[in-house]
Amino acid sequence: MASSLPAVPRIVFTIVEPISLVAGFLGAIADPAWFVAEQIPQTEPVVITDHSVVLALELGNLYLLLALIGLAVLSTTSEVKVVRGYLVALWLGDLGHILFSGYALGMDRLLNPAEWNAMAWGNVAMTLFLMLTRSAYFLGLFGPDRASAPPAAKKTA
């Protein structure tokens, strides 16, 4: 189905997004304490507990799962309805991710991107980029989906 998407959303959803999700997975798995400490830019040291490490590892696992699901859905289905439903679910997830990240950052930090660290940029700006790309796709701003090829007729002997 990915071949049915217009070029920009196809590149974003099948290359950029999975790479960013795998990067999140690798960051969480390679150094869970760093991953936890970087969630909100701050000047004071963060107390890292075993609980927060487990949550970081689980979140990393979910990032990898999302990358794999995305690749599976976009590379195996020829149904535009399935892809659109998948992208709607991700759009809702984007909204929640931005709202929860903004809540944790607080209004002052959220409105001051100059003070963001790389994690805040990923959690807010990258997610907003993905959400806006999905929105533009839904609105048809990238053009129509390409029609998928009809299934080949089975030959009978």
Results as ranks from 00 to 15, higher is better:
A149I: 11
W34D: 13
I40G: 00
E79P: 10
L90M: 09
V12N: 01
L99F: 13
W116L: 01
F13C: 10
E58V: 09
M119P: 05
N117E: 12
L26D: 06
A157L: 03
T76A: 12
F13Y: 01
I15T: 07
M126L: 04
A157S: 14
T133P: 03
G96T: 15
I48S: 05
L99A: 12
Y86R: 11
V22G: 03
R10T: 13
Y103S: 02
W34A: 04
A118V: 15
I48E: 12
G106Y: 09
A136C: 12
G24C: 06
I69W: 01
A118W: 00
E58K: 12
G102N: 12
V36I: 08
S52E: 06
Y86K: 11
P151A: 14
L65V: 07
P18H: 09
L68W: 04
F142S: 06
L74I: 00
T49N: 01
M119T: 09
S75M: 10
I48A: 00
A153Y: 01
K155V: 15
R146S: 13
L130D: 04
Y137E: 10
L105S: 08
L5V: 04
G143N: 10
T14L: 02
H97C: 13
A37N: 10
R84H: 05
V16D: 03
E38T: 01
A104C: 10
L128I: 07
I19E: 12
G70A: 04
P32M: 01
A28Y: 05
L64V: 05
F13W: 05
I69C: 10
I48F: 03
V53C: 03
M107C: 10
L5F: 04
N112D: 12
S4A: 12
A147W: 03
L139S: 15
D50L: 11
I69N: 08
L21V: 04
I15E: 05
K154L: 13
A72D: 02
A28D: 14
V124H: 02
L65C: 09
I98E: 13
A120F: 01
S4K: 08
A104Q: 03
Y86S: 13
S101V: 08
M126R: 01
R134W: 08
A37P: 08
L5R: 04
G106D: 04
A104Y: 02
L95M: 15
L21Q: 08
I40M: 01
G27K: 05
S52C: 04
F13D: 11
